[in-house]
Computed example of a mutant assay.
Amino acid sequence: MATDETATHFHSSRAPEPVGLYPHARRVGNLLFLSGVGPRQRGQKQVPGVALNADGSIQSYNFEQQCHAVFQNVRYILEEAGARWEDLVDVTVFLTNMKDDFPTYNRLYAEYFQRNQPCRTTVEVNCLPTPIAIELKCIAALSA
């Protein structure tokens, strides 16, 4: 993990590269704010579970596969910034298809957050910056 001079910005070596000029996370006091995290994999153009048409539009996607990938990417960022999954206190979820994907998301979320239950807000958005169906925005509270 590389940090800047102030040691407040974190860039994960395992999470996907940001699609813009922003860090994976930033620590302010005992809070760790994660930038939006999607299911892309570091160093790969193809999104897990996504098939694209020739024009780059989404032909089909495996939402469950994307969920697992998003949770793994969040874990990578937390760990490299010195936090744990259990430190999450707030999760904002962006879905591109609430009607079809929310039941799957809710089921998987319950599995991943069985012991730690952060606050959660789920909203539907028209689209996300890359051909993905889910993105998470997280806040963790760190001890010391």
Rank of each mutant, 00 (worst) to 15 (best):
A2N: 10
A2P: 00
T3L: 13
D4S: 14
D4A: 12
D4W: 08
E5T: 15
E5C: 15
T6S: 15
T8R: 09
T8W: 07
T8G: 09
T8L: 09
H9C: 15
F10S: 02
F10N: 00
H11F: 12
S12D: 02
S12L: 00
S12E: 01
S13A: 11
R14N: 06
R14M: 04
R14Q: 10
A15P: 03
P16F: 00
E17R: 11
P18M: 04
G20L: 10
G20K: 03
G20E: 11
L21S: 08
Y22G: 07
P23E: 05
H24Y: 07
H24N: 10
A25H: 04
R26D: 09
R26P: 04
R26G: 06
R26F: 09
R27P: 02
V28N: 07
G29W: 09
N30P: 02
N30Y: 06
L31G: 01
L32F: 02
L34A: 07
L34W: 01
S35M: 11
S35H: 11
P39L: 02
P39N: 05
R40D: 11
G43P: 08
K45S: 10
Q46E: 14
V47K: 02
P48F: 05
G49M: 04
G49K: 01
G49H: 02
V50G: 12
V50N: 07
V50M: 11
A51P: 00
L52G: 08
L52V: 04
N53K: 14
N53L: 12
D55V: 12
S57R: 10
S57T: 14
S57M: 09
Q59E: 13
Q59V: 07
S60R: 13
N62L: 08
E64N: 07
Q65C: 06
Q66R: 05
C67E: 00
H68D: 11
A69W: 03
V70F: 11
N73S: 06
N73T: 01
N73M: 01
V74T: 01
R75A: 07
L78T: 02
L78C: 04
E80G: 03
A81K: 01
A81P: 01
G82W: 06
A83Q: 03
R84A: 15
R84N: 12
W85R: 03
W85N: 03
E86D: 14
D87L: 06
D87R: 06
L88V: 15
L88I: 15
L88C: 05
V89Q: 09
T92L: 15
V93C: 07
L95P: 00
N97W: 08
N97T: 03
N97Q: 13
D101S: 11
D101I: 00
P103V: 06
T104S: 13
Y105S: 09
A110I: 10
A110N: 11
E111A: 14
Y112K: 06
Y112R: 08
F113M: 09
F113T: 06
N116I: 13
N116M: 12
Q117W: 09
Q117D: 10
T121A: 14
T122V: 14
V123S: 14
E124W: 10
V125T: 13
N126I: 15
C127I: 15
C127T: 15
L128R: 04
L128F: 05
P129I: 07
P129K: 13
A133C: 12
L136I: 10
L136A: 01
L136N: 01
C138E: 01
C138W: 04
C138Q: 05
I139W: 00
I139N: 04
I139S: 01
A140Y: 01
A141H: 05
L142F: 03
